[in-house]
């Protein structure tokens, strides 16, 4: 017998309707960006408890966001910039 994971993953639509996995994949960004509604969150979380493929996709998407937010170095603002801005404002007004 197929595992529950595989069963859920293979629930691809044959009648043109969106599968659960398709629906969940479309919610990935909403979930990692904190934009999903309570209903969407609960649908999503219930699904990934049973579907290993969607669970892994979610982990990867979170990791990708973390690479940007946690590893991208910020550039240092030149010390003179704030002063230049103030000076330019005073001469242009």
């Amino acid at each position: 017998m197929e595992s529950k994971f595989t069963e859920a993953y293979q629930k691809i639509s044959e009648d043109g309707h969106e599968s659960e996995c398709d629906k969940v994949a479309r919610m990935l960004d909403l979930m990692i960006d904190g934009e999903a509604s309570t209903e969407e969150q609960s649908y999503f979380n219930t699904h990934i408890e049973e579907c290993i493929a969607c669970f892994e996709s979610h982990q990867k998407q979170k990791l990708l966001k973390g690479l940007v937010s946690g590893h991208l170095k910020r550039v240092i603002v030149p010390e003179s910039l704030a002063l230049s801005i103030k000076a330019r404002i005073q001469v242009t007004v």
Partner: peptide
């Protein structure tokens, strides 16, 4: 959703 799969080395 078909492009979110694949084992990511990251």
């Amino acid at each position: 959703s078909d492009d979110v799969e694949g084992e990511g080395g990251v």
